[in-house]
């Protein structure tokens, strides 16, 4: 009961103090807010990148188009050469006959059907293909080149490199944000420490009296730690709102995918709530880290 009363008092004091030094508190809160927004963006980005890199890694297929006039023996020769390559899933090298492809294409559109109706093996401009899966998507470019060098392979295609580029771009962004986040967190912690320092200075007499009448050290320090904690919580409000509404809006806008079907975004629920919890936690940790630094440095008791 007694501990609870002291606890309540401390909470109240720390909230009061935030409003008493409002402009300073606001500066700290804004700093946490900015930091957490960047954190949120980078986390959302990197989790999404991870997510679709996994999907992409499973699904990216290189299509090797064979010469139009290729014969049966040559088709087998090409196969033998493909499976000697390093970055190839040997079980996932699938031959697709030109007639089969033609049939698929005709089935997908009535216009194509009328054009393709008369195609035979001999006069068809459609090429036979091998569909090949790679083991490491990062080496897909090199593998494609190697395939291109094989005799009787005409052209090699794998989503025009877009997927690969997207992965690299997002990965670079992710790495860049890590640096920014660390810098921001340090600045924020300093700013909070400074805010708490000013609170400590402005409450010097109160602290002296508390010591004099026999308040325990922890009881004297706690309001300042709480103040940092509250700054952290207040600072995370806007980033959380942005995360929950912003990400959901983004997801709906893109219909859950970017550019093509296989770059799928992570579904907003429960993803955004998970991010939100993480943001509050980071806010609290940074806030309390800043305040405990200030207390250690300026509250010598």
């Amino acid at each position: 009961m007694k501990a609870f009363r002291i606890f309540k008092r401390n909470l109240r004091d720390s909230l009061k103090s935030i409003f008493r030094n409002f402009s300073l508190s606001l500066a700290s809160i804004s700093c946490i807010t900015i930091t957490l927004i960047v954190v949120a963006v980078s986390i959302i980005l990197s989790l999404n990148v991870n997510n679709f890199t996994k999907i992409v890694e499973k699904d990216v297929t290189i299509v090797a188009f064979l010469d139009v006039d290729i014969n049966e023996d040559e088709i087998d020769e090409v196969y033998d050469q493909i499976i000697t390559l390093d970055n190839i899933e040997k079980k996932n090298v699938v031959f697709k006959d030109k007639m089969e492809i033609t049939k698929d294409m005709m089935a997908s559109s009535s216009e194509l059907r009328s054009v393709m109706e008369d195609y035979t093996r001999e006069n068809s401009p459609i090429q036979d293909t091998y569909q090949i899966k790679v083991t490491d998507i990062n080496l897909i470019h090199k593998t494609a080149e190697e395939l291109n060098n094989i005799e009787h392979i005409d052209v090699v295609k794998y989503g025009e490199g877009m997927v690969e580029q997207l992965v690299t771009v997002f990965d670079t962004i992710r790495k860049g944000t890590v640096g920014i986040v660390i810098a921001l967190i340090i600045v924020t912690a300093f700013l909070i420490a400074n805010t708490i320092k000013i609170t400590i200075m402005s409450r010097k007499r109160e602290i002296e009296i508390m010591r004099l009448v026999g308040a325990s050290n922890i009881n004297i320090k706690l309001p300042f730690i709480f103040e940092g904690l509250f700054l952290g919580i207040f600072g995370s409000i806007i980033p959380i709102i942005i995360t929950i509404y912003g990400y959901s809006a983004l997801y709906n806008h893109f219909d859950g995918k970017i550019f093509s079907d296989f770059i799928k975004l992570i579904a907003p629920t429960p993803f955004v709530y998970f991010i939100s919890i993480l943001l509050v936690a980071i806010g609290i940790i940074v806030g309390m880290f800043g305040s405990s630094r200030a207390v250690k440095k300026y509250l010598k008791i």
Partner: peptide
């Protein structure tokens, strides 16, 4: 004296007990 300027006489005295968690 070392009083808290923004607290009344009553509050100044009560402060000594509040910080000790007295009801």
């Amino acid at each position: 004296y070392q009083l808290l300027p923004n607290s009344t006489a009553y509050e100044n005295v009560a402060f000594a007990l509040e910080v000790l968690g007295i009801p």
